[in-house]
């Protein structure tokens, strides 16, 4: 369970964004809807422990995230939160398998090749496991970045604009993959987007104004 309470963040002294309180139960799938500039990325960064809010707190599984030290927070994020970015960004010097085991070892978990295969298999890209990111298509890279986000079975899966640069067909496919993976891994899903196409797939919506 994740709750955010009286969060606000100020950029400089003039620009301040307030966020209404939010409660997310385990296994729920949420849409975070907002136009660009509405503070979507800020809220996502606050949620993932990347950006310390000016006021308020984020409580996840009973832990108030911003009371942790920098190192503990990195560790906590690595174990409990999987992030999928708008553009799939993988480490170019490592193979697909290495990119995934990297995520395992950064979270201080043992490198588990069985799990890597299992995840790649479920996303239909097991045949690319020894390839380098530069050899993959955009769609395949997107799948790998989903695989990396779920490899450690996180409690929370967050996707930032996963569909905005895709056509209708692919946007639908990616959305299905996200839903499927969050179900498979029993993760709570938050998809942040301004893309109205994905609206219908979600029952829960948190809207930024």
């Amino acid at each position: 369970m994740i709750t955010i309470q009286s969060i606000s963040h100020s950029y400089g002294s003039t620009h301040r964004i307030d966020f209404k309180d939010w409660e997310i139960n385990n296994g729920e799938q949420w849409l975070l809807l907002g136009e660009s500039g509405s503070g979507k990325t800020t809220l996502l960064h606050v949620l993932t422990g990347i950006l310390k809010p000016t006021t308020g707190e984020v409580i996840m599984e009973g832990t108030s995230m911003y009371t942790l030290s920098s190192k503990e927070l990195d560790q906590f994020r690595g174990r409990n939160i999987g992030i999928i970015f708008q553009r799939p960004h993988l480490i170019k010097s490592l193979t697909i398998t290495e990119n995934l085991t990297l995520a395992q070892s950064f979270a201080n978990l043992p490198e588990d090749l069985k799990r890597v295969n299992e995840v790649l298999e479920s996303l239909g890209i097991a045949n690319k496991k020894n390839a380098y990111p530069s050899e993959l298509s955009h769609g395949q890279l997107q799948r790998v970045s989903i695989a990396r986000a779920v490899i450690n079975k996180p409690a929370l899966l967050i996707a930032d604009e996963p569909t905005s640069s895709l056509d209708d067909k692919n946007a639908q496919a990616v959305l299905e993959l996200l839903m499927q993976q969050s179900g498979l891994n029993q993760a709570t899903l938050i998809v942040a987007t301004h893309d109205k196409r994905v609206k219908d797939a979600f029952t829960n919506t948190y809207e930024l104004k």
Binding site: I50, K71, D74, G78, R79, F106, N108, R148
Partner: peptide, 11 residues
Amino acid sequence: IMRTLGASRAK
């Protein structure tokens, strides 16, 4: 990205 995956500053 490495940081988001759990790598610390020291790493």
